[in-house]
Design a protein around this nucleic acid. Sequence first.
DNA 1: CAAGCTTACTTGTATATACAAGATATCTGT
DNA 2: ACAGATATCTTGTATATACAAGTAAGCTTG
Lengths: 237, 237
Amino acid sequence: MTQTPKFALIKQHIIDNIQAAKWVENQRVPSENELAEQFSVSRMTARRALSELTEAGILTRSQGLGTFVASLKSQSSLLEIKNIADEVQARNGVYSCSVLSLESISAVAPIAIALGVEINSQVYRSVLVHNENEQPLQVEERFVNPALAIHYLQQDFNHITPHEYLSQVAPLTEARHTVEAIMPSNEVCQWLSLYNEEPCLQVIRRTWSSEGIVSFARLISPGSKYRLGGHLTFKRH
Amino acid sequence: MTQTPKFALIKQHIIDNIQAAKWVENQRVPSENELAEQFSVSRMTARRALSELTEAGILTRSQGLGTFVASLKSQSSLLEIKNIADEVQARNGVYSCSVLSLESISAVAPIAIALGVEINSQVYRSVLVHNENEQPLQVEERFVNPALAIHYLQQDFNHITPHEYLSQVAPLTEARHTVEAIMPSNEVCQWLSLYNEEPCLQVIRRTWSSEGIVSFARLISPGSKYRLGGHLTFKRH
DNA sequence: CAAGCTTACTTGTATATACAAGATATCTGT
DNA sequence: ACAGATATCTTGTATATACAAGTAAGCTTG
């Protein structure tokens, strides 16, 4: 009947008022009943507009008090960390991958701690080089908790990336990353075929599933060939 | 009456089935009417459970077809880029800031293009050094579109960071970042008091408001002192 | 056989209603 | 003056109902 639903019109009205700075941070916005009367809709429809904007982080509500414009706080923005195979394909490159090592090793202290397993227990380790057009782009050294990915060593990582495989067998619930600029070790220089020393971007990623820590990975790329790109749009409407 | 609301129980039931892998990716989940009967609730209550899980990205719905378990796809995760003053304070450091330069300059081509203004028009430029415990931690070189932040040059950046000020005068709608590992120029080495060459993390950030491109910033930090930290929890329930 | 109609199921929008529960100001009795 | 009850606002949960609209299967008809 109506081209755009009524609740969407009310949402837009609220967003407009906030963006025009007529309603400022922490200011009260009309109540469900007021909006219902103002727009000649039922309370449930007005409620839907307020609820969805609350879910989107634009408003905050509190029972008994009312609904308010949310504070923007420190406006921290987000950087997306994508699958490297997807990234290469997205720019029409040819992706390939070489498995340099795939083994079970005895976990030394820092690795055992990072994986939450006992020191000197067996863990899986893989070293892959991701290539774009046959040129090494990133080396991935990964330690995997064998309890959560029993068949890790049997995988063919030319067909499925370690991250994809692990997401299947142990659905991720949490991830932590750190990004640093480092000078590569000699070993990494060899893996990446770097003849001249150059700074590299290192991403360290630890992933959790509901069962515990799944894996711990170091992703190292030469600064001249790789950058992390991020893109974020704030308020959706 | 009921301790936990009915719609929350239904949500939990669905999440449990997905996490137990009883319902897998792209599989259909019970319809609103089926859930309503199964849990002896009204359709609207069952609908709420499905809608909220859809909003959270756990399910996908399509009119006429049904509701399905969402695919995890490439599970790209997100890295938060925080305000550096907040970060320093969060680890109990003393934050301070030195303004090295604050001026109006003539925009050379690459800067004019990045800001979307005419070549050789005047733009604002600031160079700040952010310190933690009196030690330089990051240098911020920023170019600002004067049309969108007229009083930029009159600000006291010891009281408000450029990012905070710009967020106030021109609410951000979009941001793009790239993160790279670079070797610092001599100029940057001086600003950061680096005596030995070391790799640095460079974040380039462009920000948009509804009026256009607001600013273009280079944030450079020594690799030995600074890393970007990210943390993401996937499914909330 | 094939094009089009019907039917049954799905989700999407909208309403009217009821009661619960949190917050706040006002009124009341001591 | 103060404590407690009350009234009245707010949001939160839940139901029953109605119709709209997208999808897919089966059935009808030429």
